[in-house]
Design a protein around this nucleic acid. Structure first.
Lengths: 162, 162
DNA sequence: TATGAAAAGATGAAAACTCATATTTTTATT
DNA sequence: AATAAAAATATGAGTTTTCATCTTTTCATA
């Protein structure tokens, strides 16, 4: 630890111009995303899952039997990490691997009965939480945001395969 | 690796109801945030920084001399992790610690000259990138999103201290 | 003014993550 | 058909990240 103890009232080394972050789209979006998610992510941990595991369950809930690569893209998890997360969820009996007979490179992931139940529960809870969250926000802010990100998600995922 | 090779055309274990994720606010927001940021984050790595380090630089660019706790909240980095990231950035000569004379528990972080230069460069590049990004999107989608997340950021950060 | 609670940072140890690369299988080319 | 290139997944090893906890300092209050 090399902490200087100087006083040195220097000229405010800070941006003499306009602050950057309060007007920077990517920061605002990431920050809002994190802030909105914090509460439910906490709940997810309560349920004994980490966030990426919850994402995997949610993806499979919508579309069981996806291949790992696609799951990784959708759940925003790097492939080799997802492989290991799936190992663990497999050991826990939440899902299972089945190789794809049409293309034997592929491994398709299926929820077990227990995994499907947990996924359904959490999805219900997430829906309920979203309602509450939006209700807490002023005006139609929640709806506005949802409409906008829905359009954007469509746009940004165009040209994406499978 | 225990990959079953069964066929078993079971009933689609998948949600017989409506898909969840394409209508889930938190997922859509996180996904859009990640997709929009991917490109610039790649650039940041090109510049030899990891994303959290870039966030720290940007925060300090706007407000030099912040304490670690506040920096952590703003940059969305867990405190003990930030402590170590700051260790590294200190070693690299990008910033330095100075203890706060008024409250000696606090450590305030200041950009060095080199750090300030790098921060300024990246902020310029980020501004330019944002312009290009928004231009690429249909209509006023970018502006819409920005207006909305700006409001939300204000709302969600109310009651936040310092 | 003691004393206990709270706040700010730092740190050890375990778990998680990343990066590059290996393996297997499929696709495209000659 | 042989061969090279690409795609899907797995894995080793090194680095990060996390979680709980420790220390130091300040604050509240009896």
């Amino acid at each position: 630890m090399t902490t200087k103890t100087l006083e040195e009232l220097e000229a405010p080394a800070t941006s003499g111009t306009q602050p950057f972050l309060p007007d920077y789209l990517l920061f605002l979006t990431a920050s809002v995303s994190a802030a909105m998610s914090a509460e439910f992510h906490e709940h997810v941990r309560t349920r004994g899952l980490r966030v990426p595991e919850w994402r995997v369950l949610a993806c499979l809930h919508d579309d069981d039997g996806q291949m790992i690569t696609r799951l990784a893209r959708f759940a925003m998890i790097e492939q080799s990490r997802l492989t290991r997360i799936i190992d663990q969820m497999d050991e826990r009996g939440l899902l299972e691997r089945r190789s794809d007979k049409a293309d034997r490179r592929r491994v398709r992931i299926f929820l077990t009965r227990a995994g499907a139940r947990l996924a359904s529960d959490l999805v219900s809870e997430a829906r309920a939480h979203e309602k509450r969250l939006i209700k807490r926000l002023p005006d139609g802010l929640g709806q506005d945001l949802k409409a906008t990100v829905k359009r954007l998600h469509g746009v940004l995922w165009d040209g994406e395969q499978d």
